[in-house]
Every structure is written in C-alpha cells, then in structure tokens.
C-alpha cells in the first residue's frame, strides 16, 4: 500500500472517530431521557393536573397549553409567511423593497429567542394591553416562526417548474390565478413540511414565552385567549430549577413527553414529505 493510501486511511479513520463524538452524545442524550422518564409515564401523568406544588400528579395543563400555543402560532404565522414567500418568488422585482424583505428574513432568523420575548413583552403585553396571555404568546412565537416558514415556502415555490407558470399565463390566466392554480398546489408539500418543522421548534421554545404567556402553576385550563397557560418547556424549567425536593422521575417524564411531542411533529413532516414526493409527477 502506498504512503498516500495509508495517510488516507488514517485520516478517514480519525474523521470517523470525530463523527462518533457527535453521534454518541446524541444517542446517549435520547437514551438517558427515555430510560429515566418512561417509568413515570402513565395515563394519570398525561391526563391529570399537577398536585402538591407540582411534586405529584400530571402535566395535563402544560400539554394542553403547548398544544394551544402551537395552533395559535400556526394560525398567525402561516398566512403572513406563505404570502410573503409568494411575494418574493412570484411578484418581486429586483428592487430595494425586495432586497429589504430578504434582509429582514435573514435577520429575523438570527434574533435570539429571548429578544423576541422582550419584544413580545413591551409590544403585545404592555403596549397592546393584551397582558400575559395566549394571544401575546402566540404572536411572539409567530414572529419567531416566520423566517423558517418563509424560507421553506420560498424553496417549495421555486421548485415548481417555470413552464407551469408560462402555460397558465399563455392561456390567458391572470397572475394570481396562475399562482393559485398552477404553482401553489405543487408547492403545498414543501410548505407543510416547513411549517410543521417551524412549529415543532416553537413548541420547544421557552425564552419567548417566559414573559408573554407562560404560567408558573395553573392547574385549570384556560377559558379565553386572554388567559395564561402552562407550557411543557417552561414547566420543565420550573420543576427542575424552582421547585425544591422535586422528584427527578417527574422531571424526566416531562422531558420525555416534550421530546416525544417534538419528534412526533418532525415525524409528521418527514412522512408528509415522503408521501408527496412519491406522488409527484414532475
């Protein structure tokens, strides 16, 4: 074997070892949470409110709260995200306005989530007088989710062949008809995948909801959009740092439920993607 070959084998071997440094902790992390958490999972844990200063009982209100936040965030961010991506791909001319939007998307995606929390606090909670509420929390999470939705939608629209647009326009359809009937239907899988992914991220976020919606301890379910709710990630933070003598098994179980929820959403987006890719004909 030549010297170059030997060096290559050594280099590739070392690279493989370094990659193990990434892979092993991921597997260990998941195993650690699952192994320690699964024991405390029961129907009661999922469906009962916490009791005795959260040291007993379940996490039902936090699950419901996170679910409400996900749905609210989607309702608020999906239309704006999809429409602005349509603008960027289908309508935008190469001018200052377009460049500003692109710049804005890049920077929205880089703003730390705690800064979104500050913004939500000063604008939605204080200025708009929404108080610490579902509405304020969803609005904050929605702005945070926008860049992911826009980027995913943009890619989905760009992957639709240009010829479809030409066909439609050449038959006398208007610009919007073309987008609506000849572009959007073929972009929907990509849009859905991106949306679910961004929502799964929003579901796991704690910092943006700290001052805008999250309740420390609120066993009853919310009655209106102006109520606070408990949320899984904040609940995990609270029970692992703020509650003395917290049984660790409950914390692990909460982490397990949170991770499962996020993975479930990711799984949905992967299945959606695979399903539509198989069906697609172009």
């Amino acid at each position: 074997m030549s010297g170059a070959r030997v060096r290559q084998n050594i280099a590739f071997g070392l690279m493989g070892l370094v990659t193990m440094l990434v892979v092993l902790p991921i597997i260990l992390t998941l195993w650690y949470v699952v192994a320690n958490g699964i024991g405390a999972i029961s129907l009661d844990f999922i469906l009962q409110p916490p009791r005795n200063g959260m040291r007993e009982g379940g996490i039902f209100p936090a699950i419901v709260g996170t679910f409400i936040l996900i749905v609210g965030t989607m309702i608020l961010s999906l239309p704006i995200g999809v429409l602005s991506a349509i603008y960027l791909v289908e309508y935008a001319k190469d001018n200052l306005f377009t460049r500003l939007i692109k710049l804005a998307v890049v920077n929205l995606s880089g703003i730390p989530s705690i800064v979104y929390g500050l913004f939500g606090l000063t604008v939605f909670v204080v200025l708009l007088r929404l108080g610490t509420s579902i509405l304020a929390g969803c609005m904050t999470l929605a702005i945070m989710s926008l860049p992911v939705i826009i980027t995913a939608t943009k890619e989905a629209l760009e992957s639709v062949p240009a010829s479809y647009r030409e066909i439609s326009l050449s038959l006398g359809a208007t610009k919007w008809q073309t987008v609506r009937h000849c572009v959007l239907p073929y972009a929907i899988p990509g849009i859905l995948t991106g949306t679910v992914l961004s929502l799964s991220r929003a579901a796991g976020e704690t910092a943006p909801i700290l001052f805008t919606v999250a309740a420390f301890y609120l066993p009853r379910l919310p009655r209106s959009l102006f109520d606070q709710v408990m949320a899984l990630p904040y609940h995990l933070y609270v029970i692992s740092t703020q509650v003395p003598n917290m049984p660790l098994s409950l914390s692990f179980a909460t982490a397990f439920v949170l991770i499962s929820l996020v993975f479930l959403m990711n799984l949905v987006s992967i299945i959606l993607r695979a399903h539509y890719r198989r069906k697609r004909q172009w």
């Binding site: 030409e166 066909i167 439609s168 359809a173 009937h181 697609r280």
Partner: peptide, 17 residues
C-alpha cells in the same frame, strides 16, 4: 408542456380560468 393533472383538467384549465 402538459400540467401534471388529468387530460380533462388540462383542456378545461383555460375555460375555468
């Protein structure tokens, strides 16, 4: 350049619009 829809829908696309 046909659209990835049925024969009927291809022809009916223009009139529908």
């Amino acid at each position: 350049q046909v659209l990835p829809i049925s024969i009927f829908d291809n022809v009916a696309y223009g009139p529908r619009m």
